[in-house]
Structures are given as structure tokens and as C-alpha cells.
Design a protein around this nucleic acid. Structure first.
Length: 539
RNA sequence: GGCGCUAUCGUCUAGGGGUUAGGACGGAAGAUUCUCAAUCUUCAAACCCGGGUUCGAUUCCCGGUAGCGCUACCA
């Protein structure tokens, strides 16, 4: 295959978060748009922090997105390649052993003066001396010998015309071109002698990443902008390894409304992909949303299918400034006690389950970026009813409610314009599923410009009339309107008490369709108990 | 501290030397309707600051400021 080869290379140190998901999606889109190859590579060289649990949750997130990849690798399987690459660089004289002990994580920031470049003495160590100390078992890190001004770099591998290393403005500079950020140049004297191999022999991220990119023939590296300045090091490694650098494209970062980077610690579950899945986002809507952060098709299109995204995607559409994922932070801060009942979906109350713990995972709708919700609603409406219904069914059943697929389909038609998240089915259509309506205030039964006597009159009449009508839309319509006229009421005044009696609330799908699905028996039962409720209130 | 990147409505963005600075979400108002939703109409809402270049800068250049990133034997 002649197309580009791109990779998504997460390090398994946590769940899949939205920023990583977007990086994955952009890589995928680029690969598919250009008939290339999508590679998944687990960058797991940090044995301390990697966990299997994290690997699992990353796969879980990717599986939900539903975007496939063509090849899969794990860096920990390829350590030999990394080491071989490192030592080849060493043999060229472009890396050296540093016997200086690693500083134990302290912040010796070298304060006022410039950045740290290398440890004194390590660079100049003769090869013989270096070999001797290594042979004696003394631990060392292998460091890259970043070309320095006045060190005769021309004698090394550097300096040939296509080199990334060149003189500019009297300084030795490293250069590369980024598809998003354009030409990038940095003085070599601002790049420290970074490590290739740790003293335990494990490759560092920089080395492993580049060695694998070479070996896997990666043509385009599309990743977060947090790697932009690392790229100077990478370009150096590629060249030292005798390889041509891939084309780089760095993505603007996704940040939280408070301007800081997204972190689970600070911002809670809204940064995890599975939260969106569990809240009832459609993967295609979530993908659509993420694509609009930091990329634009430049034609005002927003609501797009996967295929449309794939057709429209290009690196030129990526912009350079960070984008805010506009979720509500207050709703997600985890220790904040569940304040009042309104956080708890009524469906849960009704079913009497999970009552005590409104999991932050299912934080209210207001938690999510409004645009994400809007897009999700758009995608929900764009779905064929049958397929929407199929997705809703397991959610309803998961709540312990039994519905037949046939009934679910009819309900779906009534709610599809009324839900933003799949899970909203539980709060929007609950009255279709429960046998017993959750308690509601009898005052709700009272129509506009009416009193409880009017409500009683309406419901009493409705009970008589409904007992003798066929439960289909038109007969219901005619009968109830006629009843209203007969009672000298406006249609709305007639319908509202019935709606509340039957749904337990004022806001619900259209009345006749609702009654049709509910059926005569349930309807009459609920009207009867509403009448009882009213009579109770009167006494 | 050093180095780098960025800066258009609240948010996501389009645009570009001369525009009524466009779209979307969200907000407000109205229409429609048996409520809600959907739909439609309308409204409010932005070029970070200061210098240059220019007949003219929001756009180009420089400086400032702010935000973010990197500055690890993390990735």
C-alpha cells in the first residue's frame, strides 16, 4: 500500500481521555482519507507507571469509538530494536555514556542561569575510559550528543545539505517543518543532551518512539502540541539513525474551561471517553464533536457523519490555538456532596435503585459541553428509528424494566426528538415502563385557569369517555376534543389533567400517541388514581 | 529562570490590507402546537494592548501582556 502510514501511540498510564481520543481520530481520519495505514502502538516503556488496567481501559474506549486499525504493536516487545538503534548512534560518536548518577527527582532548576545542557565531564570522556568504566559494571545513561557550536560538527554526520542541523543567524540550529505550525527552528544550545537509554538499560520515550517510527516506516506523525518542542530532539535522533524524518503535524491542545490541561484529578470523569459512552453519547456524535475542536472544514459544516468527516479531513484544516472543552466544572468536582434530589434522575427514584449514590459518571446533562449535547441530539434524530430503538432497548432493560422491542419502537418514535442523550430515555419515557407512577403533586393536575374542581370534572368525564373509545390516535383525538367542548373547556385544559394523570408530569410527548402506546387499561387505572388523589386533597 | 507556541462573540470557529467581521452552540424574544421537544423568525454578543509599515490595519512587522507547552535516566 502506497498511502501514508500513521500511528496512535498512547502510553498506558491512565484511561483514554478526550485529548488522546481526538489524536486517535485525527490519525484515523488522515489514514482513511488518504487510503493509508493506521497503526496502534502502545508506548509502554515506562514500566513503573504502566498498568494492564490502563491498557484495558484504552482498548475499551477505542472499541466504543468503533474506528479500526490495521497494525498493532507494543514497544515493550521491541526493546532490542531500540537498544540496537541507540548503540548504532553511539558507534557513530553521536551519543556517549554518562556515569553521573541520576538526580533523585529534586528540582535543581538551575535558577537564574540558562537551562541545563549536560553533566560536566561526561561528554569529554574518552572512548577507552568510557568502555573501561562500563566494563567494570559502573551504571550509566546513554545520552545524545547534541551538536554544539564550535565543536567541529562538520566532521560528524551533521552538516550535509538535507540535514536538520544548520547555521542560521550565526548559530547552530535544528530545523523541521510542521504541517500545522510551519517551519520550526531552535538553537542547538537550547537543547540539552537528552537520554537515549536509562541506567537500567531501558530506552527512553524519545529513543523508543523514533526507533519504532523508523522501523514501522511511519510517514506522518500526528500528535499533541505538547510534543512540538520535543520534536527537535526527535529530528536529531532520526538523522543520527540515518533515517528521514516523517512529516510532523502537531495538534493544538484540548484544555478545560479554567484554562488548565484536562486532568482526571482536577476535572473528574468528564475527561474520560467512557464517561461519554456511559452517559449515552453516540460514538459518531462524540467523534463529530471532537473533530470540531482544533479542526474546521472551513465551510460552516458542523453536523457531519463519519464518512463526511473522512471526506473533508485534511491537515490544512487544523488550527494552532488550544481549544476549550466547555464542560461544567462544578458538576464534576467529586467531593462536592450530592446537594439535592434533582441530581438524581427520577427514573432511578422510581425504580428505587442506586438511590444513595448519584454516580458522578452519570452527572446531569449540564455536565457536558452544550455543543456536544446538541450534536448528539442531532445524530440521534438522524438515526433511523429502528436503529435508535435497538440502542435504547438495552439501556431500558438495564434499568430493570421489561419492554418488548415492538413497544420500544413505538416509544422511540415519541421520544426521539426529546432526548439529547441515549440515557435520557430513562427520564423521558419512564412512565411507559413502570407499573406504578412515581408520586407527583396533585396540584399538577389542575389545568390553566382552572381549579381542582375542574380537574376532577375533566378526569371523571375522561374516564367515562375513554372507557368506550378505541385507543388509536384519531378516535382519541375526536372523543377528547368533543368532551372538552361539551364541558365548555379549551382543549389544553382538557388534555393537561389527563397528561399528568398518565405521565406523572406536565411535560411529555403528545397525548394521543402516548395513550395509544400506554393502552386502555393502564390509562384508566392512572386516571382513576388521579381522581382519588384529587378527592383526597379536597377532604 | 530559559526556550517555544498561541491570541476573532461566553464557547467552537470562518475570514482577511478597504467586509454591515460570517456560521454554529449556548442565551433572549416571537411564531407554531394539547404541554414539552422539534421546527421557523428575530435580537444581543468578538478582532488582547501599544507601536510601526501603509492612503488605509482586526489582518503584515516589532514590542508588551496573557495563556499554554517543553525544560526528567515520564510519556
Amino acid at each position: 500500500m502506497a498511502g501514508p502510514r500513521v500511528r496512535f501511540a498512547p502510553s498506558p498510564t491512565g484511561f483514554l481521555h478526550v485529548g488522546s481520543a481526538r489524536t486517535f481520530i485525527f490519525n484515523w481520519l488522515y489514514a482513511r482519507h488518504n487510503h493509508g495505514t493506521m497503526i496502534l502502538r502502545l508506548d509502554d516503556t515506562d514500566v513503573e507507571r504502566n498498568t494492564q488496567q490502563s491498557v484495558d481501559s484504552i482498548f475499551e474506549g477505542l472499541k466504543w469509538l468503533g474506528l479500526n486499525w490495521d497494525e498493532e504493536y507494543k514497544q515493550s516487545d521491541r526493546l532490542d530494536l531500540h537498544r540496537k538503534t541507540a548503540w548504532a548512534i553511539f558507534e557513530k560518536g553521536l551519543a556517549y555514556r554518562d556515569f553521573t548518577p541520576a538526580h533523585a527527582g529534586d528540582a535543581e532548576k538551575s535558577g537564574a542561569q540558562g537551562a541545563w545542557l549536560f553533566n560536566p565531564g561526561a561528554r569529554e570522556l574518552s572512548r577507552a575510559e568510557s568502555d573501561r568504566r562500563a566494563a567494570s559494571g559502573e551504571p550509566f545513561a546513554l545520552r545524545f550528543r547534541v551538536p554544539r557550536h564550535g565543536e567541529g560538527y562538520a566532521r560528524t554526520a551533521w552538516g550535509q545539505p538535507p540535514s536538520a542541523v544548520r547555521f542560521a543567524e550565526g548559530k547552530l540550529c535544528v530545523h523541521f517543518n510542521d504541517a500545522v505550525y510551519g517551519d520550526q527552528m531552535k538553537a542547538a544550545d537550547d537543547i540539552e543532551d537528552f537520554a537515549l537509554l536509562r541506567s537500567d538499560g531501558m530506552p527512553t520515550y524519545h529513543l523508543a518512539s523514533c526507533a519504532d517510527d523508523v522501523d514501522l516506516r511511519i510517514s506522518h506523525v500526528i500528535r499533541g502540541q505538547d510534543h512540538l518542542t520535543n520534536t527537535f530532539k526527535h529530528v536529531l535522533i532520526f538523522e543520527a539513525a540515518g533515517a528521514v524524518s516523517p512529516q510532523f503535524a502537531h495538534l493544538p491542545l484540548l484544555i478545560a474551561p479554567d484554562g488548565t490541561k484536562l486532568s482526571k484529578r482536577r476535572h473528574g470523569p468528564v475527561v474520560s471517553v467512557t464517561t461519554y459512552r456511559d452517559a449515552g453519547f453516540l460514538p459518531e456524535a462524540f467523534i463529530n464533536f471532537l473533530c470540531l475542536l482544533g479542526w474546521s472544514p472551513k465551510n460552516d459544516r458542523e453536523n457531519m457523519s463519519l464518512q463526511e468527516l473522512q471526506d473533508a479531513f485534511s491537515l490544512e484544516g487544523i488550527n494552532r490555538s488550544n481549544a476549550v472543552v466547555n464542560f461544567k466544572e462544578s458538576a464534576t468536582s467529586e467531593p462536592a456532596a450530592p446537594p439535592s434530589g434533582d441530581v438524581i434522575p427520577t427514573a432511578r427514584e422510581a425504580s428505587g435503585r442506586h438511590l444513595l449514590f448519584p454516580s458522578p459518571l452519570f452527572a446531569s446533562e449540564e455536565t457536558f459541553d452544550p455543543k456536544a449535547l446538541w450534536l448528539n441530539a442531532e445524530h440521534i434524530r438522524a438515526l433511523p428509528v429502528e436503529s435508535l430503538s435497538e440502542r435504547l432497548l438495552p439501556i431500558v432493560r438495564g434499568e430493570g424494566w421489561d419492554v418488548s422491542p415492538e413497544k420500544m419502537l413505538r416509544i422511540t418514535q415519541l421520544i426521539r426528538e426529546r432526548i439529547k442523550l441515549l440515557r435520557d430515555v430513562l427520564t423521558t419515557a419512564d412512565f411507559f415502563f413502570v407499573k406504578q407512577l412515581p408520586p407527583y403533586d396533585a396540584a399538577e393536575l389542575i389545568p390553566q385557569k382552572g381549579d381542582s374542581a375542574m380537574a376532577l370534572k375533566v378526569l371523571t368525564r375522561a374516564r367515562e369517555v375513554l372507557a368506550n373509545v378505541e385507543f388509536r390516535h384519531d378516535p382519541l383525538d375526536h372523543t377528547l376534543r368533543a368532551a372538552a367542548q361539551e364541558l365548555g373547556l379549551k382543549a389544553g385544559q382538557m388534555f393537561q389533567p389527563i397528561r399528568v394523570a398518565v405521565c406523572g408530569r406536565k411535560n411529555a410527548p403528545p397525548l394521543f400517541e402516548t395513550l395509544e402506546v400506554l393502552g386502555k387499561e393502564t390509562t384508566l387505572e392512572r386516571v382513576a388514581s388521579a381522581i382519588a388523589k384529587l378527592q383526597q386533597g379536597v377532604n
